[in-house]
């Protein structure tokens, strides 16, 4: 069992170093070594995207990355955000508020993945706004990878659309 030493920044806090098996999935690292269970395991093969977290790149861009099969060692040295890092001091983000206001989720198990992915979308729109007429298509492109079994997606998408249209920086 080959082990590696990893350390990364999670929600602005440096974690580790931890000695972990080389092939340990990132989600298991979050759950078992960091106690961060808000990232949800859905499929283990990257098909449902319940498990995505946000990876913040040095160039200022971010991406939502699955954690269910990618090794924790792949995240060594990286800066990531998990669901636990969005609300600061109990204050929810506008996206989280919108999900609540729109009754977007039901069982809630896929919600952290939706929050992370949609947050990445919002931040990318802030860098490159899209025409208002293209908002729906853009949301679908960003979010279609996420499976929700309870809701039929409607209220999730309505909430994301509402947040985008309410922020003049995100559209043109």
């Amino acid at each position: 069992m080959k082990a590696v030493r990893i350390s990364l920044t999670i929600n602005s806090a440096v974690t580790g170093p931890h000695q972990v098996p080389e092939t340990l999935p990132m989600i298991d690292y979050l759950h078992e070594y960091c106690g961060l269970t808000g990232t949800r395991f859905g499929c283990g093969i990257g098909a449902c995207r319940a498990c995505v977290i946000i990876v913040d790149h040095d160039d200022g861009t971010s991406a939502a990355v699955p954690t269910c099969f990618a090794a924790a060692s792949d995240f060594n040295g990286k800066k990531v955000r998990t669901i636990e890092g969005h609300a600061v001091g109990g204050r929810l983000t506008s996206l989280q508020e919108a999900f609540l206001d729109h009754f977007s989720f039901q069982c809630g198990y896929c919600t952290p993945g939706f929050v992370n992915e949609a947050q990445v979308l919002l931040e990318s729109l802030a860098r490159e706004p899209v025409p208002r007429a293209e908002v729906d298509a853009r949301i679908l492109t960003a979010m279609d990878g996420h499976i929700c079994r309870c809701t039929g997606y409607v209220r999730y998408y309505e909430a994301i659309r509402a947040v985008i249209l309410a922020d003049p920086r995100l559209t043109r």
């Binding site: 269970t37 808000g38 609540l100 009754f103």
Partner: peptide, 23 residues
């Protein structure tokens, strides 16, 4: 205006049996 279980769900709180460990 919101679900009573909304806040823990939207913040990834420990809610499901999958979330819990002995500690």
């Amino acid at each position: 205006h919101r679900r009573v279980d909304g806040y823990p769900k939207v913040t990834g709180a420990k809610l499901y049996s999958a979330d819990f460990r002995a500690a």
